[in-house]
């Protein structure tokens, strides 16, 4: 989670802490032979597990990206260099999923961020049932993406769905809208489901950050006679820049990499309109073309890494703090 900074304790929890706890705590100590062995023994299980069950299959999967590896015909699985990547870039359908992925990420992220931020501002001040409220709005996080897809597939059902029923009762539409069947609305519907899932994550991360902003800053700002809006932009946002930046980064990665919701809700349809790169990858895997699916996976990791690096360089979350 903390990609950049590791040497500060945190101030989270229910209170606003005027001063972050004094500097650490653990300290980084030099150590020698015997300790090193103990530490290695501590690290080893984690490394073995992740190495064996994550990295070994991963690397073995990556090499397929450079081979003609199709389960439907394994008589020739020779190395083909970048052939799979070229095929993909020429594939109109793949290009479509890239476009959809961008819509999906941006379309989900922006409302999640805005609503989440607003909620955090509203929740900053204590009120009687705040704890209970936070626990309740945290619920979506306990539900799997796949199941969320199913829940919303049921609600957006064209004939018997509650969404249509409510909209018709409110006289906003006259006839049922085939949400998941119409290319015009399907992406909107899956994004609504994803927003539902992600809003609270933002709200809660941002709230935690807000609570660590020193009180004095606001008092000073009030003395200066700054209005609410100015306080927001000149005090609040700069103070929590790091959290905002890292939360956004994390969400981008997760949203990009979570085809489960789409898989459960539309399966990528209608007419591939809701297929994102990672859900298309599921389909190609099911078609048996492991080579092409792996090539897609490699591109995803590559693009996300590049994005993370440029993003962190651009927002420089570390500098913002000092």
């Amino acid at each position: 989670m903390s990609v950049t900074d590791t040497d500060r304790p945190t101030a989270t929890g229910g209170r606003s802490t005027p001063n972050p706890r004094p500097r650490p705590v653990g300290g980084r100590r030099p150590f020698t032979g015997r300790t090193a062995l103990v530490l290695l023994a501590f690290m080893l299980p984690a490394i073995v597990f992740v190495g064996l069950f994550t990295y070994y299959p991963l690397l073995s999967g990556i090499q397929m990206a450079f081979r003609n590896y199709n389960l439907n015909d394994l008589s020739d699985t020779s190395w083909v260099g970048l052939q799979n990547f070229r095929t993909l870039l020429d594939d109109e359908m793949f290009r479509g999923t890239v476009r959809n992925s961008v819509v999906w990420v941006v379309g989900s992220l922006v409302p999640q961020f805005l609503i989440g931020f607003t909620m955090a501002l509203w929740l900053r001040r204590r009120f009687r049932f705040r704890g209970a409220y936070q626990a309740l709005v945290f619920f979506p996080w306990a539900v799997s993406g796949f199941l969320i897809g199913i829940l919303f597939r049921w609600m957006f059902n064209g004939e018997f769905g509650v969404v249509n029923d409510l909209l018709m009762k409110a006289n906003l539409i006259d006839t049922p809208v085939p949400w998941l069947a119409d290319a015009k609305y399907a992406m909107f519907a899956v994004i609504v489901a994803n927003v539902w899932y992600g809003v609270t994550f933002f709200a809660i991360m941002i709230l935690a950050a807000l609570q660590s902003v020193p009180h004095e800053l606001y008092e000073a700002s009030a003395i200066d006679g700054a209005g609410k809006v100015r306080t927001l932009f000149s005090i609040t946002i700069p103070s929590i820049r790091t959290t905002l930046a890292l939360t956004v980064l994390l969400r981008v990665i997760w949203i990009f990499n979570s085809p489960e919701l789409i898989f459960g809700m539309t399966g990528g349809g209608p007419a591939n309109e809701t297929h994102i790169v990672t859900s298309y990858m599921i389909q190609v895997t099911q078609e048996g073309d492991y080579g092409r699916a792996s090539a897609m996976g490699v591109m995803v990791v590559f693009v996300l890494l590049l994005f993370a690096i440029f993003y962190l360089l651009a927002v420089r979350p570390k500098k913002a703090m000092r």
């Binding site: 064209g158 004939e159 998941l180 069947a181 209608p270």
Partner: peptide, 12 residues
Amino acid sequence: LFKNASPKSSVS
């Protein structure tokens, strides 16, 4: 057949 005689949601 689709346009005139099938439910719109049958797209999926």
